[in-house]
Design a protein around this nucleic acid. Structure first.
Lengths: 131, 131
DNA sequence: TTACATAGTGTTATATTATAACAATTTAAA
DNA sequence: TTTAAATTGTTATAATATAACACTATGTAA
């Protein structure tokens, strides 16, 4: 479970928008959508995004420069993320697999180094697009 | 082993530069470095980068918007990549672990879907920066 | 060898993503 | 209450990436 943070006004507005979105949202699309709520500048969006990522309420899909809400309630470590991405429809799903996260959290490189933080993006075709 | 492709002039110039670099290179840094060789515009760089990524000669580090040469000669599937990234010095190393790639190539999500293509980025501190 | 398709090139302009710098305000803790 | 830390609002600008178009090279098949 996430540590509870009281979101500020801008953070709440932007989180709500991302949380309602069925797909990852890009920063300038977020900006466009919240302008009627008084958020006028890119920086206001990016600052809220940075904070929301930091506290684990949202994740950034690095290969897409887009953001989705975290729906992984068992996600202890907000910094360990895994997603599947459909290369046709661009649907993105957060993967919550105890096995996978355990494997990656325990993975050691050649030098015996372990990493608590990672981002994994799988690419393929979703059920719909495969048919 | 990579299928042999004859690189074009621009592709070769840009690959050589990235291949010699001890660290991932960003597109505009590449551009700056190859201007004396007659490559003048961003698009010339991006086109070569796209092709080099496509044929597996280089990889893109998504979280850094930077490119490194593939030094993983056993990398059958150029589309299955894993890196460790030092959060202090930004050193990036390609991970070649048969165990890891086997695990990820065989990973199935909830719906039983397997993914041949993935990108994994681990974050931590490298040996030097840990001390 | 010619003709054709495919891939690559060069160029200008522009779109998209993200941060710097600074002043003012709010919040939370000592 | 006072003080430090975080957040906000704002303008300007940096950094990353693609669109569109005309032209050129290369390989292949008739």
């Amino acid at each position: 479970m996430h540590k509870e943070h009281t979101l500020t006004k801008n953070q709440q507005i932007i989180f709500d928008l991302i949380d309602k979105s069925p797909e990852p949202m890009k920063a300038y699309s977020i900006l466009f959508n919240v302008q009627k709520k008084g958020i006028k500048a890119p920086l206001q969006v990016y600052r809220a995004l940075d904070k929301l990522v930091e506290i684990g309420k949202i994740h950034k899909i690095e290969s897409r420069n887009a953001f989705i809400a975290c729906h992984n309630s068992s996600c202890q470590v907000a910094k360990a993320t895994a997603f599947s991405i459909c290369e046709i429809c661009e649907k993105v799903t957060e993967i919550s697999s105890a096995g996978l996260s355990k494997y990656l959290a325990n993975f050691k490189d050649k030098d015996g180094m372990k990493y608590s933080k990672y981002n994994l993006e799988f690419f393929g075709l979703c059920k719909k697009c495969r048919t």
